[in-house]
């Protein structure tokens, strides 16, 4: 379960990692070409929630998309249960590769507007069955994400954004993925439900024995639901490890600046720290000790 070295067949605990991404690179064409992801590696075990945090433009979304296969990798490898995850081209997705599913940021474009919600969840169920996994019912999934069981016959536009996102989550989980990649899944939701939905996602994936890669810019929520956190800046992981350790004792200057900039809602009227120019230069440093930090003794 490390962030840099890929897991061999079976780690110390004997559990094989679900997802192993090694040195993933993503380049975009342009003048000059842009390297959005610059050699990122992560391994996620079943039942583990790993968060990838960073600000806009750091490449976390590109990395997520590259892992799932909807963005072309310029380098590196991604393995799901030991098998390569191919790029999603014009071919039908291989049955084994349907074991990795994604939840997107925008709830409004995550569902087909012209199909009933239950039908769309059933698609997920069919995918699980095709892989030989257990079936389930759409009504059951709807209840598990906090919607009425009979809401299935409705169309997406009859739901709020938050509800649509939960339906999208239900559909993804109905496919019984071994790995769930969530790209800023709560950013577009109302503040009052963000934490609850994130916690729900954690709960449900744990129950399913799936691993979850949770992309977010919101560190406060991530602190609550992630076992490990990876901090990304300009395409690279600058710090990573056990969430509480990273949070309470950040080593890398960028992580420190990020955490210091978060306003604390305690009513004290304290302005968060705004990073100065001189400090920014230090963010590109590579500090090996900051990577793969274990639980503080």
């Amino acid at each position: 379960m490390s962030d840099v070295t890929p897991a061999a067949a079976g780690t110390l605990s004997g559990v094989r990692d679900v997802l192993t991404a090694v040195d993933v690179t993503v380049d975009y064409r342009g003048h000059p070409p842009v390297r959005a992801v610059d050699g990122v590696s992560v391994s996620i075990a079943p039942g583990e929630v790993v968060a990838l945090v960073g600000e806009s433009g750091c490449g976390k979304s590109s990395f997520a998309r590259a892992v799932v296969g909807i963005e072309k990798r310029s380098g590196g490898t991604v393995h799901l249960d030991g098998a390569d995850v191919p790029f999603l081209g014009l071919r039908r997705r291989g049955v084994q590769s349907t074991g990795i599913q994604m939840v997107f940021q925008d709830p409004n474009s995550s569902l087909n507007p012209r199909r009933r919600v239950a039908d769309q969840i059933n698609d997920g169920i069919r995918t699980a069955v095709a892989r030989g996994d257990a079936s389930s019912s759409a009504a059951d999934w709807l209840e598990r994400v906090g919607l009425a069981a009979d809401a299935g016959r409705r169309y997406p536009h009859e739901f709020s954004g938050g509800q649509k996102q939960r339906i999208a989550i239900a559909r993804a989980l109905a496919a019984r993925p071994h790995m769930l990649v969530a790209d800023e899944p709560i950013s577009a939701l109302d503040a009052s439900t963000q934490t609850a939905v994130a916690a729900l996602m954690r709960s449900l994936s744990l129950e399913a024995g799936a691993g979850m890669l949770f992309i977010s810019h919101d560190l406060s929520v991530v602190r609550r639901i992630a076992d490990r956190t990876l901090v990304m800046y300009q395409g690279r992981i600058v710090e990573s490890g056990h969430t509480e350790t990273v949070w309470q004792n950040p080593i890398h200057p960028y992580t420190q600046a990020l955490l210091a900039a978060i306003p604390i809602p305690d009513g004290a009227g304290r302005l968060p720290l705004a990073p100065l120019e001189e400090h920014r230069a230090a963010w590109t440093q590579v500090i090996p000790e900051a990577i793969d930090r274990e639980l503080a003794a």
Partner: peptide, 15 residues
């Protein structure tokens, strides 16, 4: 490239 279309492909839909 809409999310729901991509989701369908990830679930194994043929083009």
């Amino acid at each position: 490239s809409s999310n729901y279309v991509v989701s369908g492909r990830l679930l194994g839909f043929s083009p």
